[in-house]
């Protein structure tokens, strides 16, 4: 059995375990990225927790996680259920809602930045010219995180809907028909048949959402670079800035360790749920 796992194991060791160990080790050194690393003990972690920007970045990661555990998931569940009930519209609607997912992140970011939010060239500019007083949310430190989240949700929710729809289609038709014959409406069907029927998929996607939310980087970096005034800074942009703009790889590695910690917690919860499920089913 180990022989079968060997290729995957080797790839994982080379491209995941080794860099992970090196990053963890780097968190205990002062290193500018080109010189000789110097042992720093816990100094990088101490400096990090003393930096108010770290805490605002961590808070933003939690806000991001909360947004992505709710808004796109709810949208996707409703859309998946609706598409399950309306098979004729399925192909067209799936294609449309999946489309944002196949557009490059950089392109999506630039479209929203330049063609929607921009007060010079975007829809916001057009609205202002027509009597609506709307400012660019990306330019407001209190709204920029939510504005970028909106862009990412647009990019993400269709994919989630397609995944949920695939899972719902595995539910036995007899079960759905029986519920309908018993008089279940859409909401009851949704609550008592569809959601329980896709629970493993839903759990997996929620756990992955937590992991990905603590790694979020591309959209924020492309659209706001964490600003203005650190308003949309998250741990990944915090780490990137330290590593590549400030020449402080140790501090960046410390932030990366915190990001990984949340990912590990989410993974542990997922494994625990799996074990619990297995125990219940045997």
């Amino acid at each position: 059995m180990w022989l079968f796992a060997l290729p995957a194991l080797l790839i994982n060791i080379c491209i995941i375990l080794v860099p992970a160990v090196l990053t963890f080790t780097a968190a205990f050194f002062m290193w500018d990225g080109v010189g000789t690393p110097v042992w720093a003990g816990l100094a990088n972690f101490q400096n990090m927790v003393a930096d108010p920007v770290f805490w605002s970045a961590l808070t933003n990661n939690f806000i991001w996680t909360a947004i992505f555990l709710t808004v796109p998931v709810c949208l996707a569940l409703v859309m998946a259920a609706a598409l399950l009930m309306a098979p004729k519209a399925r192909i067209v609607v799936q294609s449309i809602i999946f489309l944002p997912r196949i557009i490059a992140v950089a392109v999506t970011g630039r479209i929203f930045q330049g063609m929607i939010f921009s007060p010079a060239t975007g829809i916001v500019a057009w609205l202002n010219e027509h009597g609506f007083s709307i400012s660019d949310p990306l330019a407001d430190p209190d709204r920029s995180l939510y504005a970028v989240a909106a862009v990412d949700i647009w990019h993400w929710w269709g994919f989630l809907a397609v995944v949920f729809l695939s899972a719902m289609r595995q539910i036995s038709v007899e079960q759905i028909e029986a519920a309908r014959l018993d008089g279940a409406g859409f909401l009851q069907l949704f609550r008592y048949v569809l959601i329980p029927g896709i629970r493993p998929t839903l759990t997996l996607m929620l756990i992955l959402t937590v992991i990905w939310s603590f790694q979020v980087f591309e959209f924020i970096f492309i659209v706001t670079r964490g600003g203005p005034a650190y308003g949309s800074e998250v741990l990944a942009t915090f780490a990137y800035r330290h590593a590549f703009f400030e020449g402080d790889v140790g501090q960046a590695a410390a932030a990366a360790c915190v990001m990984s910690l949340f990912g590990l917690c989410a993974t542990a919860v997922y494994l625990w749920l799996q074990i619990t499920d297995d125990a219940q089913s045997t």
């Binding site: 500018d32 430190p141 964490g226 600003g227 203005p228 005034a229 650190y230 800035r241 703009f245 400030e246 020449g247 402080d248």
Partner: peptide, 19 residues
């Protein structure tokens, strides 16, 4: 130097936006 300059750039936005 690098870190000081990076903060000069990022931090001034906090001043301008009354943070």
């Amino acid at each position: 130097p690098g870190a000081t300059n990076s903060y000069l750039i990022e931090g001034i936005e906090q001043v301008w936006l009354n943070k």
